[in-house]
Write a protein that binds this DNA or RNA. Structure first.
Lengths: 341, 341
DNA sequence: GTGAAAGCGCTAACAG
DNA sequence: CTGTTAGCGCTTTCAC
């Protein structure tokens, strides 16, 4: 049934069949023009006959040069990151490079595992959305010769490029909008402040509140999330409601759209579409389905595709020995029904 | 600024620093128990000092054996596929294998490119959701010694395992449900019949119609999609409406949930929530946000995670020389508001 | 328990 | 234009 595990043909085999030397086979593969047409055809025929496929690792071992880039994202199920990934791919395609993609799930152990894997593989460079805030291990890698670019996080490290979005501005946009709608109490479903984005968005929220002449302590109530997805949002809001004798908040700002989806789910389960409709909700990321939800979601949009593209651009530059650079994109508020009464 | 591109340290370097031979270094790396503790520590110190990281390709070249599996999915932005990917990863983790993930975007050129890349890399095996074209090239690969398992497509090939869902049953579930709701005309937004899933779902629809004593020609109107995503659904429905003097259909079955999202978007734009509410819509895949849409979406659920897990299981078996096997999962209808009046 | 040496498949440098 | 040959970094016999 299964054919005997027959060794894949090597250049030597091809050379033998074609009646030429391995050097010539290699030339056909890498510099076809430097080979006489007749010979070339003979070699190509042999390649086809044997079903020869180049051995990538051997090739890489010999050449040193590399065309693979590794990307380590936080959560591949989050549309925000898949859009970023698409931007990365699109830039790599230009140079005919390829992508190894992995998701850390915000788990430092997984992060470490994949970083190591990438390094062993000998990637040209790494695009990483860091989990923890300690960048020690990334600095180490860079010292060992692997170019590293931080994605969705500003670099504080000399020689390490980064692409990020001004998260403080994003938080400010969201809160200012809710305040402008007349809300004076905002429940902020946020992730741990160890995550820089979460901390920065909170700082932005506070800034907006102060700009309105109010005191954050009076206005903002931050609720921590167990996980930054729909389940986390659902649960966190539930906790808030339980702690308030069943009352629901008037205005909720969610640290991302998935969390907002969870909030909507919870509200609907608890008080139907009516309750949902009269609760102001703002999300973050503006994922594709944000406008298609039960109540279309107001959200802070980040230029995902561009971020991936730009980060890759910086990585390629950096790997080519050019100095590090930092790009900061500005977010944008997309207002929909969920926040306007 | 950027440090000189200093060659990464090799086992030879480690051996020199530790004052041992390369063989011993290799032993420390691969069979630590076979090395005297004192020596081992000396070597480990040298490894740490130099920041030595094993060269993966060289290792693979020498050993032959491989622990990487390639997966080629249709569209990494579709939650259906990311869930499948998670299933794959979970199974691979058990054996400490790793995943190379890529998305063909249903483009045969991209498919070919990645398949080739994987083969060059020397993967243990491949999990592939085939794009529309023939399986010839996959058979070829298998002949060359790369284990191949078809995902989301039943294999017709001897010796090639597959994991699929009974798509005909899925189409039947959806159509039978709409018929039971009293609808006698169903617009089916479908992809090209060159895609097996699309063809099978259509066959299932027809079967349900006939089972109800009706003639598919009277009941089912199939509209082809330009793309199997929200944009495609939006546009396809728009085309239908234009061709019907602005009338909108009563019942729509969409070949996947993303398409249904597009349909909802279109209806809402055209006639507000009212129109949306009185149109029956059934989707396919039951993606996570299906229940959170403007009108929660009735959908056909497929066991995504299990599919990925099982496919990987079959791949590993097959790579180990065991005979091919075929698993067919059954879909399930999840009824929500979008299809009930 | 450790060292010496061969070789995985390929490319590149050099000779002819 | 084509052939010969020397490694790339690693693992793995096989001696010692």
């Amino acid at each position: 049934m299964t054919p005997p595990p027959h060794r894949r043909p090597s250049v030597t085999d091809v050379a033998r069949v074609a009646g030429v030397s391995v050097g010539t086979v290699s030339n056909v593969l890498n510099r076809p023009d430097a080979v006489a047409p007749a010979t070339r055809e003979r070699v190509q025929a042999a390649i086809a006959e044997l079903g020869f496929v180049r051995n990538g690792p051997a090739r890489q071992l010999r050449r040193g040069a590399i065309t693979t880039v590794g990307a380590l994202l936080l959560d591949i199920r989050n549309p925000f990151f898949t859009d970023v990934a698409r931007g990365i791919e699109d830039r790599l395609t230009v140079d005919d490079h390829t992508l190894m993609l992995a998701s850390s799930d915000d788990d430092p152990a997984r992060e470490a595992k994949y970083l190591h894997l990438f390094e062993e593989h000998g990637v040209l460079g790494l695009l990483v959305v860091p989990t923890s805030r300690s960048l020690e291990h990334l600095v180490e890698m860079q010292r060992r010769g692997v170019a590293v670019v931080l994605l969705d996080a500003p670099s504080t490290i000399a020689g390490m490029s980064s692409v990020s979005v001004d998260d403080e501005a994003g938080g400010e946009l969201a809160a200012a909008h809710l305040l402008a709608q007349g809300h004076r109490r905002i429940v902020f479903l946020n992730g741990p402040h160890a995550i820089r984005q979460c901390e920065a968005r909170r700082a932005g929220v506070d800034r907006a509140v102060r700009a309105a002449g109010l005191d954050p302590a009076d206005v903002v109530e931050e609720v921590p999330l167990a996980s930054l997805d729909a389940a986390g949002g659902d649960q966190a809001l539930g906790g808030w409601v339980d702690a308030h004798d069943g009352a629901t908040p008037d205005a909720v700002f969610c640290v991302n759209d998935l969390v907002a989806v969870g909030v909507q789910r919870h509200l609907r389960r608890r008080g139907g579409t009516d309750l949902l409709r009269r609760t102001a909700i703002v999300g973050y990321d503006d994922i594709e389905i944000a406008g298609e939800l039960a109540v279309p979601l107001t959200s802070v949009r980040q230029p995902t595709h561009e971020m991936g593209y730009e980060a890759t651009e910086l990585l390629l530059r950096q790997a080519a020995g050019q100095p590090a650079r930092h790009t900061v994109f500005q977010p944008e508020l997309v207002v929909r029904a969920s926040s306007t009464s």
